[in-house]
């Protein structure tokens, strides 16, 4: 099961993703985090129609952490750099922070509406990797949260 990074069990691992903006309905955002000890935290806030913040946390098994690592590893995101990505703007901001082994990335960019935004950017290759990885990670986390808590996470 070793995924290039050697021992996938006890190596340091941390993942955090944030997407959000401030607007008419306050600070609306979605954020999730896998901590090295296995704690998965999830927060989703929207003030739309007086919605309130959803916060959930649960410990996931080492197998879940390994799968998250695999998804990240296979994406090759650690080789990318956000230097030429669109800067966060008033429309919104995304942040992806990952610690794997002795590498630590903390990328920021604007919201990406579609692949058109990716194509027209200065680093379509790198941004595409980010774009798909984020979707795959969200998908994984949403399934976990949905199955464990029986709530339907809403896309932010």
């Amino acid at each position: 099961m070793a995924t290039g990074g050697g021992d996938t069990g006890n190596d340091e691992f941390y993942l955090r993703y944030y997407v959000g903006h401030k607007g008419k309905f306050g600070h609306e955002f979605l954020e999730f985090e896998f901590r090295p000890d296995g704690k998965l935290r999830y927060a989703n806030n929207s003030n739309y129609k007086n919605d309130t913040m959803i916060r959930k946390e649960v410990f996931v098994s080492p197998s879940v952490l390994r799968e998250a690592r695999r998804i990240i590893h296979e994406s090759d995101i650690m080789k990318e750099d956000d230097g030429n990505w669109p800067e966060p703007d008033r429309i919104g901001r995304q942040e992806l922070e990952i610690v794997m082994g002795n590498e630590h990335i903390s990328f920021t960019t604007s919201k990406i509406g579609s692949l058109v935004d990716v194509q027209s950017s200065k680093d379509p290759e790198g941004l595409r990797i980010f774009y798909y990885l984020v979707q795959d990670l969200k998908c994984f986390v949403f399934s976990l949260i949905n199955l464990h808590f029986k709530i339907k996470p809403i896309q932010s």
């Binding site: 590498e103 630590h104 990328f107």
Partner: peptide, 11 residues
């Protein structure tokens, strides 16, 4: 944490 780490990104 005290292990030196390669860091990358605008964050």
């Amino acid at each position: 944490d005290d292990a030196p780490r390669k860091t990358k990104g605008r964050g």
